[in-house]
Design a protein around this nucleic acid. Structure first.
Ligand SMILES: [Zn+2]
Ligand SMILES: [Zn+2]
Ligand SMILES: [Zn+2]
Ligand SMILES: [Zn+2]
Lengths: 131, 131
DNA sequence: ATCAATTGCGTAATGCTATAACGTGTGCGA
DNA sequence: TCGCACACGTTATAGCATTACGCAATTGAT
């Protein structure tokens, strides 16, 4: 997905996520943007919807939060899975790709004639610092 | 995790999930158990908490739903990851394990000195029938 | 048998996450 | 100019999960 010029709201949300040290929930983003005129959840969710579509933001399903893509310039997202290691101590997220895992999963799905459209790989635990 | 004798509520919730053809949300389970005396979400969530602990039920994070374990007698859960292919057409879920994927992911995490505690692998798409 | 600790249960209230529905304004091509 | 697509603002509502409080049953010493 090519990334067009972001709108005002999309830019605000994206900037908040980019500056954050950990994933943020939609409502946390809302709070951080109240001074910028945000008043309702939908303003955040609409911006997030586009940012997710453009691939510059990821949603972490297991913690209902959002994070800026750590590899915005790589093309891995176009043909590979993305995995996340989420530290429950400090909240930090490591985003990574592994083609071996990809292929292995995809092969298995293919053997079941299952057509994959969206994948979630999230590992929760503790990072080196927080162990 | 060894599975002790289930309590009345746990049994009711487990039976509902076992009979279901697709994952169920907590509130759907609640509705199905109103005739059995269930009145509040907490009755469901408390039962689910235990069932998850015993490993006889899995939570699907990407769809906020719960499903009975498809391989309750295998010991894969003790040392391996579980993955789910979720059909967005019929709702059916295929639960599977792949040690190759396991090891690959675990090796990567180890290289980052990340201590994994819980993993989520969920692929959404369409099953053979619904494609 | 008694007491204390644990566990499960019932109910009400609350909080967090996400979407539906409706209307406005703006830009742009037919 | 008209029609359409799109972003935006606001209110209300839907859906998911937990906190808090109290009671009852169970267990396991003493
Ligand atoms: Zn990314
Ligand atoms: Zn950490
Ligand atoms: Zn299982
Ligand atoms: Zn299907």
């Amino acid at each position: 997905m090519n990334t067009p010029q972001l709108t005002k709201n999309q830019t605000l949300v994206f900037d908040v996520l980019t500056k954050a040290e950990a994933p943020l929930s939609a409502y946390t983003i809302l709070d951080k943007l109240r001074d910028n005129g945000f008043r309702a959840p939908l303003q955040v969710y609409r911006a997030l919807e586009k940012l997710l579509e453009y691939g510059v933001v990821h949603r972490l399903e297991s913690i209902n939060s959002f994070v800026a893509c750590a590899h915005p310039n790589e093309d891995c997202h176009n043909h590979g899975l993305v995995a996340f290691a989420i530290c429950e101590g400090c909240g930090q997220v490591i985003e990574f790709h592994d083609h071996e895992v990809d292929h292995r999963l995809m092969d298995w799905l293919k053997s079941q004639k299952f057509k994959a459209e969206k994948a979630t790989i999230e590992i929760r635990g503790h990072c080196a610092t927080c162990s």
